[in-house]
């Protein structure tokens, strides 16, 4: 039982079965299930983390320009996933969506923290450390795109999503993703061919 609590988090401390020892069928993990179920959920989340950690992190770095934001968003999204338990039907899809939302909130806060006169993403993100030079070039080029274009490139070209799956993450249509991708790639080619275009 204690293991279940650790895995599920304090938010799940609630109703590990009543005095009658019964648990309702179909309820979420923390309510009805025992430690075995909790462990299974934790293992499932761990497997999703192992699979998604790198592409998700890279996509958020590509979109946000900040490995700090990516670190935070990925860790927080999977922590949320652990806490929510089996009510999340598709952990991978949930992690993609929530990580981008968390990162968006983090970026917004950081922009506010920089105060008036900030020049947006470049100020927020600063110079990404832990990144090789070619990665830094890519991130800086991406920073010149619109937010939506950057999201599409991050999901499709960096993380390997298809247009439909990227659309599911972004809550838009596959056609929109394709259009945004086309414009983004055209712009990126220019930016990466002429580094002088990098900052303007």
């Amino acid at each position: 039982m204690q293991d279940a609590t650790i895995a599920l988090g304090a938010g799940q401390v609630g109703e590990h079965g009543g005095r009658d020892g019964t648990g309702a069928a179909g309820v979420v993990l923390n309510v009805a299930a025992d430690a075995d179920d909790a462990e299974l959920w934790a293992e499932r989340v761990r497997a999703a983390y192992d699979e998604l950690r790198a592409p998700l992190w890279r996509a958020i770095v590509a979109w946000s320009g900040s490995n700090d934001v990516a670190d935070e968003a990925v860790a927080e999204s999977f922590a949320q996933l652990l806490r929510r338990g089996a009510e999340v039907r598709d952990p991978a899809a949930w992690a993609w969506r929530s990580a981008f939302r968390i990162a968006a909130g983090d970026l917004k806060r950081r922009r506010l923290a920089t105060g008036p006169g900030s020049d947006g993403l470049r100020t927020v993100a600063g110079r990404p450390d832990r990144l090789p030079d070619d990665a830094i070039d890519l991130v800086r080029a991406l920073a010149q795109l619109s937010d939506q274009q950057r999201r599409c490139v991050a999901l499709v070209d960096v993380a390997g999503h298809t247009a439909p799956s990227a659309a599911a993450v972004l809550g838009t249509s596959a056609a929109t993703v394709r259009v945004q991708l086309m414009r983004a790639r055209r712009h990126l080619r220019t930016l990466l061919a002429d580094p002088a275009e990098e900052i303007r």
Binding site: V74, A75, Q80, L82, L138
Partner: peptide, 21 residues
């Protein structure tokens, strides 16, 4: 142009995630 991040491996922060949860 988009492979620049492929060589970057983010750290495994699973323990931190569990602690956060």
């Amino acid at each position: 142009p988009f492979r620049g991040l492929d060589s970057v491996e983010p750290p495994d922060r699973w323990d931190e995630i569990v602690a956060r949860a």
